[in-house]
Design a protein around this nucleic acid. Structure first.
Lengths: 140, 140
DNA sequence: TAGTAAACTGTAACCAATACAATCTTGAAA
DNA sequence: TTTCAAGATTGTATTGGTTACAGTTTACTA
């Protein structure tokens, strides 16, 4: 899913999030960089155009956007939090060799979850790990 | 799944993991406490019977057992790593109100993953978040 | 029994994330 | 347009889970 600037603006207004310059830029960055960046990568990437941007702002913005459901938090590995523009249901595959995170489509809603009959499910995350085709080829 | 001491011993030998006193105790603890403890909880819980147990040992043991596939690492939340005796495929549901982590059965293998045709998938994790029935009841 | 490789211990260090207080900005009312 | 309060940003200090490392201890094998 690719957001336009106008769509982002509209969505943020609906969620009652103030549209500061920094927040718009962070969302733009997430929409243009689809490689699941960390907060640090976002901070480094945006410092070129916003030299005063602080890391605290990046974190607080990402937390606010995650609470509002605009971005998805990815905890596929314990020592790194990554972020994604929230899109239709999909899983994340992390290659343990090269570290790349791939999206893959998966109909998570179709999973039978009889055990959770009376649970209120707000968020579903599917994480796979293994080796990607590129790294499999290099091992030969 | 519930391991007996004998089964644990056998499984560890197969995986070529030395059976130190500390490692056996950590595995016993995981097999008896099915509440997905953190490394710190394991350390605190075992200090009663092994006063000299260091946190470093707990971490290195858990990492070794995870590499060998005997325990499962749970990263449902970014700031806490939890551990589980590896069992048949199941997902984890975390209640955002009380923090409890529930197991639920889910046939993860049944998910269509055409996007990952040439990927070598070694590990599958399914994480849900929301509110558990107990906390839903208390909110009324 | 001796010797070597691995495991354990405890301290120090690391680093992502957060707390906090001061400053700045935004949006709306007057 | 001006004013002002609520909210956002900034930068520093701090936290807390995890790892690095060096010395000591333990476990397996010959």
């Amino acid at each position: 899913m690719k957001y336009s600037n106008e769509e982002l603006t509209t969505e943020l207004k609906i969620k009652h999030i103030r549209l500061s310059h920094q927040r718009v830029r962070i969302l733009d960055y997430l929409a243009s960089q689809l490689n699941h960046p960390t907060a640090d990568q976002i901070h480094t990437g945006l410092r070129k155009e916003i030299p005063t941007l602080s890391k605290t702002t990046v974190y607080s913005t990402l937390n606010a956007l995650a609470d509002a459901g605009v971005v998805r938090v990815i905890h596929i590995e314990g020592n790194e939090t990554r972020y994604d523009i929230r899109a239709e249901d999909h899983g994340h595959f992390k290659c343990e060799s090269c570290g790349t995170i791939y999206d893959f489509t998966a109909d998570i809603d179709s999973l039978a979850t009889g055990d959770l009959k009376n649970f209120d499910i707000k968020d579903r995350n599917l994480y796979y790990k293994g080796t990607c085709p590129t790294c499999i080829g290099e091992k030969i």
